[in-house]
């Protein structure tokens, strides 16, 4: 078994560091443990994948890293800030300032054009509309949608929607990007394109990327892979091996 590298890493370089995290969902009197004693650390600028079967707790872990959920036990540090003790407003502020999300189903706002969708995080930060639009147009051009600036989500393909979502995640210049099954709604070619784009844009500015996926076709984009299963997260074989395994499979 590979020793989790996270435990060896100096926390000053860690974008994300969690230790002994546990989470259970309660429904009435019953309680279902989803995460138990999860510890991992991801460096700044790394691209880490959380993989595992459905129901293994990947999305719960991503939600905790994204300050959407709080852990029942353990510590969660995002760029050195302990988030478990934060109130909802502070967690929201941290999300807005430091984290960009890419969702499986894109979650674009229907009434807004592609550029307006990309500008949403900037609007939430109070950036002037003209400045926000200019930045949105730049990002759309970077993701290859320079000709779809005023197109609405209804008129875009799935791949194009995910590119818009990617541009939106980058708009606020977050240091951490969390992607939940970003290729699940895309075909192989589009999935690879989106991942290549995500890797390129994130790496360019040294952003940390954490991707939840069970799509083995994109494992090659990962610097590190954590397998989440039975409530535990362990660093798995090297991405190269995973990729080889996936291809062989």
């Amino acid at each position: 078994m590979i020793v989790p590298r996270s435990l060896k890493i100096d926390s000053a370089h860690a974008a994300v560091r969690i230790e002994g995290v546990a989470k259970a969902y309660r429904r009435g009197a019953s309680s279902t443990a989803v995460l138990d004693q999860v510890s991992l650390s991801i460096d700044r600028g790394e691209c880490a994948f959380l993989v595992g079967p459905s129901g293994s707790g990947k999305t719960t872990l991503l939600s905790i890293l994204g300050c959407i959920l709080t852990a029942d036990r353990g510590t969660v540090r995002i760029f050195g800030q302990e988030t478990t003790a934060m109130n909802p407003a502070r967690r929201a502020a941290l999300r807005l300032a430091e984290i960009g999300f890419v969702f499986q189903r894109f979650h674009l706002i229907r009434g807004l054009s592609a550029s307006a969708n990309v500008a949403v995080p900037l609007a939430l930060r109070g950036v002037a509309p003209k400045v926000a639009r200019r930045r949105a147009v730049e990002l759309l051009e970077e993701v290859g949608l320079g000709d779809k600036i005023d197109a609405h989500p209804n008129n875009l393909s799935a791949g194009q929607c995910q590119r818009v979502a990617l541009a939106r995640a980058l708009a606020g210049e977050p240091r951490l990007i969390l992607a939940d099954e970003p290729t699940a709604s895309l075909d192989a070619a589009n999935g690879a394109d989106v991942m290549a784009l995500l890797q390129k844009l994130a790496k360019k500015d040294g952003r940390t990327v954490i991707v939840v996926t069970h799509d083995a076709r994109i494992f090659s984009f990962a610097d590190r892979i954590f397998r989440v299963d039975s409530g535990r997260a362990t660093e798995d074989a090297s991405p190269y091996d995973q990729c080889s395994l996936a291809k062989a499979g």
Partner: peptide, 17 residues
């Protein structure tokens, strides 16, 4: 539009937004 409001909240929208 619950999903859209959820998205905004996930991105960090506050109550006032």
């Amino acid at each position: 539009r619950l999903g859209e409001f959820g998205t905004l909240k996930a991105m960090g929208a506050r109550e006032r937004h």
